[in-house]
Design a binder for these strands. Structure first.
Length: 105
DNA sequence: CTTCTGACA
DNA sequence: TGTCAGCA
């Protein structure tokens, strides 16, 4: 039972998260079972959806609307996550090189 | 709140 | 296959 506790923080129970993204609670649980999303859990086992999770849920709805099935969406989500990681990696690498150039050697 | 099961388009 | 409703 998740009452009206944690407010103000970016974490929501499944009922709140489902309403915020306009999805059914059962769908959110299915997406997790299919590996599309991994919300946090309380010690009691209640799912806690962060703002990041909400963004992922909206992305799922977007891709779902495009006609992708859950398996395809899972792949897209995985690829997009890796893409962001690689871009961060590249950005820090180029920044390091620029730093090395300006450094007296 | 959780999981599971069944029905529908 | 994805969504939704009901039950334990």
């Amino acid at each position: 039972m998740a009452g009206g506790n944690n407010a103000g923080r970016g974490v929501y129970a499944i009922s709140v998260a489902a309403e915020l993204v306009g999805m059914g609670q059962q769908n959110l649980r299915l997406y997790e079972r299919r590996g599309l999303i991994e919300p946090g859990r309380t010690l009691g086992g209640t799912r806690q959806y962060s703002e990041e999770d909400l963004a992922t849920l909206r992305r799922i709805g977007e891709l779902l609307d495009l006609g992708l099935n859950l398996a395809g969406i899972g792949m897209v989500l995985r690829l997009e996550a890796e893409n962001r990681r690689l871009q961060r990696e590249l950005r820090s690498a180029t920044a390091e090189r620029a730093n090395a150039r300006s450094r007296p050697g």
